[in-house]
C-alpha cells in the first residue's frame, strides 16, 4: 500500500523534478528554440525509443496525439481526430530538432493561437487542476520517444 502511494506521487511529480536530480535532463524552462525553429539538443541525452513513442502517441493519458491527428501507421487504433493535420509523412516534413520544438511548446512554432497543447512546458494555463500543477504533460524521455517515432512516419 505504502509503496504504491509512493509510486503514484512520484509519477505525479513528473519527470522534471526527478530528472533535475539526474542533472542531464533539460528543464522545461530551459528548452531553447533557435532561429531555425528547432531545439537541437536532446532533452535527455538518451536516444528515443520508437516502440515506446508509438505507445505514448496513442495513449489517452499521455500524448493522445491521435485525439487531433490522423496517422495511417496506427490504422488499427479506432477514432483518429481531425483537429490537426494528418501526420502521415511528418517524418519527411520535419527534422527531429524541429519536432522537439513543436512537441515541447507548439506556441513558439505555430503562434499563441494554436490549440495544440505544450507537452513539455512549465507554463501551464491558469486554473490548472492541483493534480497537474507544476508538472509537464509528458516527461522529457517520452518527448524524445515520440520524436523518434514521428520521425519514422515517411511517405
Amino acid at each position: 500500500m505504502k509503496a504504491s502511494v509512493y509510486v503514484i506521487s512520484a509519477l505525479a511529480a513528473g519527470a522534471f523534478t526527478v530528472s533535475a536530480v539526474a542533472g542531464e535532463v533539460t528543464a522545461p524552462s530551459q528548452v531553447m528554440v533557435n532561429d531555425e525553429f528547432a531545439v537541437e539538443k536532446s532533452l535527455t541525452g538518451t536516444p528515443g525509443d520508437v516502440a515506446a513513442g508509438r505507445d505514448w502517441f496513442a495513449n489517452r493519458k499521455l500524448g493522445n496525439c491521435l485525439a487531433c491527428h490522423q496517422n495511417a501507421d496506427q490504422a488499427s487504433e479506432p477514432f483518429h481526430g481531425e483537429v490537426g493535420p494528418t501526420l502521415d509523412g511528418a517524418g519527411d516534413r520535419w527534422e527531429p530538432a524541429q519536432l522537439r520544438a513543436i512537441i515541447s511548446n507548439p506556441k513558439k512554432i505555430f503562434g499563441d493561437q494554436t490549440i495544440m497543447p505544450a507537452f513539455y512546458s512549465d507554463r501551464t494555463g491558469t486554473r490548472t487542476a492541483k493534480k497537474f500543477a507544476g508538472t509537464t504533460i509528458l516527461t522529457a524521455q517520452q518527448v524524445e520517444d515520440i520524436i523518434a517515432y514521428v520521425s519514422t512516419l515517411k511517405e
Binding site: 490549440i115 497543447p117 505544450a118 501551464t124 494555463g125 491558469t126 486554473r127 490548472t128 500543477a133 508538472t135
Partner: peptide
C-alpha cells in the same frame, strides 16, 4: 480564457473546431 494544463478555452473546441 484558456485554462488548464492543456491550456484551452471553450472557443478552441466549440467555435474553432
Amino acid at each position: 480564457t484558456r485554462v488548464g494544463q492543456l491550456d484551452m478555452s471553450c472557443a478552441n473546441c466549440h467555435e474553432d473546431n
